[in-house]
Design a protein around this nucleic acid. Structure first.
Lengths: 332, 332
DNA sequence: CTGAAAGCGCTTACAG
DNA sequence: CTGAAAGCGCTTACAG
């Protein structure tokens, strides 16, 4: 099956390739009758335009690149899918690249003639972002506040979320709050912790260093750390706010191993509201971060940057989702 | 920042573009000294080859397309990521396309100059597969047995898995087995059921139609169906084999609502071994289907088809993973 | 070993 | 309104 090109259509239709191109792209320079005819021939020949030819020629590629460091995991999958549909609706194609290397991002970005990019890559520094900015290609970061002429950011209101979590737990009457930290250096982790700390402070309490455990966003790490904490004989917390749902679950497992019931003895809440929350029992109280909203915003923003200049940073707010792992403190 | 091309490198290096191309691609026609020099200049200029130019020129595009109907969900994410790494290791790039339309697949496949494709799309019929075959592009299906000169399939041993599941439950002493069916028409669903039925038959038992519920691979559907079944006053099963983990979980929820304990009163097993199994309690006994193995095989196969002709069908075997939802039947 | 030239499939000025 | 021609960035015969 020979690949059929614009030339074949032109020959069959008895017109020039230029006319075929114009007709196919609905430029109104071409006479309606000619257009009809060309379209009919293209249809009959089963003509499919070659995207590479189009892209190479320059101008619009109608493709937006999504650069993520991983794709496995509930967050990325949903993010990608939502973005795909949002972009497709506007006539753009999403090209997903899995990479954590800034160099590779540059390479694909310049070498694939992408119209724009959405990037989630923890390893960017200021200088590299600037280099990207100089490319003049619309870029939306999912994890940086950086802005530029053609550069925006879409982030979660992590500070507010951390505050909200601690505030909720405090409101339930808990006194000994613990935090399971995420990943050092990670924007959301730091912000959630800052918000959490501020809420304690506003309540006239201070953050006790030993009541901050390292969870690395991982179930196993949170489990191990909580276990160690309990083994060392510290007084267990009344309530814990974990930086994400996985670490909340790991934490609950360790608590149970030591005979502590959730939520009767200790309240635990997570963050993200990933699919798991609804499967564990009791169901996990958490803060919902909508990766769909994030994806939708990011898609819209990268498209906006195509025609407008001036990046901005968009913040997605979280919502408290009360399920079964937190309880009012009953005086003892 | 002007995009720098092979021409710029040629000018800077004082050679022709042909020589630059040859040097860059390590063709040993070029004199070592020249090669070194060209490479150095390319490096200094920060030259990044334009993939579109390469692809358009024909020959190798070094890109394999993965066509999936969805990307959200644990299965797809892991599949995609594994495939990406397997392909990357061989110098190929994975391009992910989310689509369920055969037409779109054809379009991307012919219009993007892909070297090959891996396809997971339930809506293919024989004729369409043949059309794809005529393209002469290596294709690996993840959900069809179809083979061709440049067409292979990578499937799970679903018949065997269904058999294994029923056999295990029977071996535990259960008598009233129930099956939660997947999606009608779906290959794996049908095969699992066939294997399940055969195991019953081999044990001298027959499949009772009312003991086959429709789960559609969904937690909610399985829950609803099991609920209906119980409400109608049928005798509850001793054991149930659900076509996937989600439906097993839905089934357990309905069982519990009716005061039936798992595994004390009824044993339940799922299929897939997705991440959830380890999060529910008790942990779900299931059959592990490795999407990683599937991805690795598929990647290897599509690459093999690049240089060899003659498709085959590869089958990935499953493994029984015993956790906490099945129990030996204690006579009553 | 190196370079000039053709061509991959397309679009876009530019003539007519 | 239509067509001939140039050119996007690259590779690959083909001369030299």
């Amino acid at each position: 099956m020979k690949k059929i090109t614009i030339k074949d259509v032109a020959r069959e239709a008895g017109v020039s390739v230029a006319t075929v191109s114009n007709a196919l792209n609905n430029l109104d320079v071409v006479q309606p009758k000619t257009r009809e005819h060309v379209l009919a021939v293209a249809q009959r020949l089963n003509y499919i335009p070659n995207a590479m030819g189009k892209r190479l020629r320059g101008g619009q590629s109608s493709a937006i690149g999504l650069f993520v460091s991983a794709i496995a995991g509930v967050y990325y999958g949903s993010l990608t899918e939502t973005m795909h549909y949002a972009l497709q609706k506007q006539g753009y194609e999403l090209q997903v690249y899995i990479t954590d290397s800034v160099h590779t991002i540059m390479e694909k970005l310049t070498g694939h003639n992408l119209d724009g990019a959405i990037i989630h890559c923890n390893s960017f520094n200021e200088a590299q972002a600037d280099a990207l900015n100089r490319l003049g290609v619309p870029i939306v970061f999912l994890d940086m506040e950086k802005t530029g002429a053609k550069m925006s950011g879409v982030l979660f209101e992590s500070y507010e979320n951390g505050y909200m979590a601690a505030d909720y737990l405090l409101g339930l009457g808990h006194k000994r709050l613990m935090h399971i930290f995420g990943v050092p250096g990670n924007y959301d982790s730091e912000q959630r912790f800052r918000g959490y700390a501020q809420a304690l402070k506003d309540a006239g309490m201070a953050v006790e260093p030993e009541y901050v455990l390292n969870g690395r966003f991982e179930r196993a790490t949170a489990y191990r750390e909580m276990r160690r904490f309990l083994q060392e004989g510290h007084t267990p917390p009344d309530a814990v706010f974990a930086a994400n749902d996985y670490s909340a679950i790991g934490c609950i497992e360790a608590l149970r191993e030591f005979g502590l019931r959730v939520p009767e003895d200790v309240s635990v809440m997570g963050c993200d509201d990933n699919a798991l929350c609804d499967f564990v029992s009791p169901k996990l109280t958490t803060i919902r971060l909508s990766e769909r909203d994030q994806a939708t915003y990011a898609a819209r923003e990268v498209l906006r940057l195509l025609s407008q200049s001036g990046g901005r940073v968009e913040r997605i707010s979280g919502a408290l989702i009360v399920r079964g792992t937190c309880k009012i403190r009953t005086e003892d």
